[in-house]
């Protein structure tokens, strides 16, 4: 993510370097996408948010663009955007399905994404069309390693 999130295609093209700021937290039972979203699965339902690592790189989140309830999302496809003071980043869905709930608190308090990325800063709840997709996601250890490697590149 660092490269991609750190802004724009332009910026990553220019190989923006970011000093590693220390280890961001991960949560054990979540699954992670390489585009830095997490998903918490309960049966067919999945709650989606962005990771601590992602919010840390983005900085102060000032706006979260949410989808409508009922919208279809696909794994790897963009469903919304997070705006920070410095950057705009699309949010990709780690799973396919239908949006059944959105975190409406984010409209008034987008900073929840920074303050509580894994709890109060959740973004959408999805009714998954296939749980098979979960196998392509990373567990917390793999994701931690992935972040370290990505940061090391910069």
């Amino acid at each position: 993510m660092a490269s991609r999130l750190w802004a724009s295609r332009a910026a990553s093209y220019l190989r923006i370097s970011v000093l590693h700021r220390g280890f961001s937290s991960v949560v054990k039972d979540l699954k992670y996408a390489d585009s830095h979203e997490w998903v918490k699965v309960k049966g067919n339902s999945a709650i989606v948010g962005i990771t601590d690592h992602a919010q840390d790189h983005l900085g102060d989140v000032v706006y979260v663009e949410l989808p409508e309830v009922g919208a279809a999302v696909t794994q790897g496809g963009s469903f919304g955007a997070v705006e920070s003071v410095k950057a705009t980043s699309d949010i990709n869905s780690p799973v396919s399905g239908k949006v059944v709930e959105i975190n409406e608190e984010l409209s008034n308090s987008p900073g929840l994404v920074n303050a509580s990325p894994y709890e109060n800063g959740w973004i959408i709840k999805v009714e998954m069309s296939s749980t098979d997709e979960l196998t392509s996601l990373m567990d917390s250890d793999q994701y931690s390693k992935f972040c370290e490697e990505e940061d090391a590149k910069h």
């Binding site: 802004a7 910026a11 220019l14 585009s35 705009t88 980043s89 699309d90």
Partner: peptide
């Protein structure tokens, strides 16, 4: 999160 990002300084 994908790089649809538009970071102004990067842009400039």
């Amino acid at each position: 999160m994908r790089g649809g990002g538009l970071w102004q300084l990067g842009q400039s």
